[in-house]
Design a protein around this nucleic acid. Structure first.
Ligand SMILES: [Zn+2]
Length: 276
DNA sequence: ATAGTAGCCTGGCGGC
DNA sequence: TGCCGCCAGGCTACTA
């Protein structure tokens, strides 16, 4: 499941493979996931433009293109998406939803079995004005302790619901949320306003540590996600709670429980993560 | 401001 | 063995 670490790893591996390369063709096999333009406009406007940069905002990759008028595209991998760079003549995955043929004989392919991923395209300013992109909060990987506390302190929502909202902090998904809350010993349903600054500081620290550990391990590959080169991540082996309901808590040996919080499957330890 | 739910989509799973 | 129905998951749109 691509969250911040998987998207960041995708960006890092993508950079040397595609930056500076010229697009020679674009195709979409699932135009419904394109926002802001038609696939016809994309196929007409993209050829001839070079890839200038690949940035990340939360879980979104933002690609800046050369040429006039200015154009960018953005990709959200959602749950099952990944970006692959493969030889242009090779057989495409049956789940390839869009592909950019590049001048160096390779092809950037958006592979997304569940079709939940999205592609935004258009003028840079208009692109960032789209509801999702314009509302993104500060990035989870770089947010400072004070800014983190300011974003959540005093709010009456449950802490996990707040963490998952991309307008609170950008980049957190179900894995990072459950793992960070476990590390910080906070119940997923705890009301944010009931948590002290010290406790929120612990959560901030836990979040950054979880992100760093996931990056180091190459991200979490559950079913579909892999890097542009096909390499899968090993962070799943390091999960303390996510996907481990029924197993023992690594800290207190209690049985981890599964529940629904903010509409998402959630695993937590009822002894370490008390809701007071 | 916050919570809840339906819908999107399909591979994989459990049940039979 | 094969078929069927259900579910997960991030996000949007909607209601309360
Ligand atoms: Zn525990």
């Amino acid at each position: 499941m691509p969250e911040l670490p998987e998207v960041e790893l995708t960006r890092r591996k993508l950079l040397p493979l595609i930056s500076g390369e010229r697009i020679t063709a674009f195709h979409s096999a699932w135009p419904r996931n394109i926002i802001g333009a038609s696939r016809i406009a994309m196929a007409r406007e993209l050829p001839g433009r070079a890839i200038r940069s690949v940035e990340r905002r939360g879980k979104v990759l933002l690609v800046d293109l050369s040429g006039a008028p200015a154009r960018q595209f953005a990709v959200h991998l959602c749950m099952s998406g990944r970006l692959a760079v493969e030889p242009a003549g090779s057989v495409r995955s049956p789940w390839a939803r869009a592909w950019w043929t590049l001048g160096n004989g390779t092809e950037l392919r958006f592979i997304d079995p569940r079709k939940f991923g999205r592609i935004w395209y258009g003028d840079p300013a208009r692109l960032l004005a789209h509801a999702y992109l314009s509302s993104l909060g500060p990035d989870a990987r770089t947010i400072g302790r004070e800014a983190f506390i300011r974003r959540v302190a005093g709010r009456r929502a449950g802490i996990k619901a707040l963490l998952l909202r991309q307008d609170t902090i950008a980049g957190i998904g179900n894995i990072l949320a459950d793992e960070s809350l476990w590390r910080a010993r906070i119940h997923p349903r705890a009301i944010a306003a009931s948590l002290s600054a010290k406790t929120l500081g612990r959560l901030h620290r836990a979040l950054l540590a979880t992100i760093a550990a996931s990056l180091r391990a190459g991200g979490s590959s559950l079913r579909d996600w892999a890097g542009p080169d096909g390499a899968r991540g090993g962070f799943r082996e390091h999960h303390r709670v996510y996907g481990r309901a029924g197993s023992h808590c690594p800290r207190c040996r209690c049985v981890l429980k599964r529940m629904i919080v903010a509409g998402r499957g959630t695993t937590a330890c009822s002894r370490c993560q008390r809701n007071r």
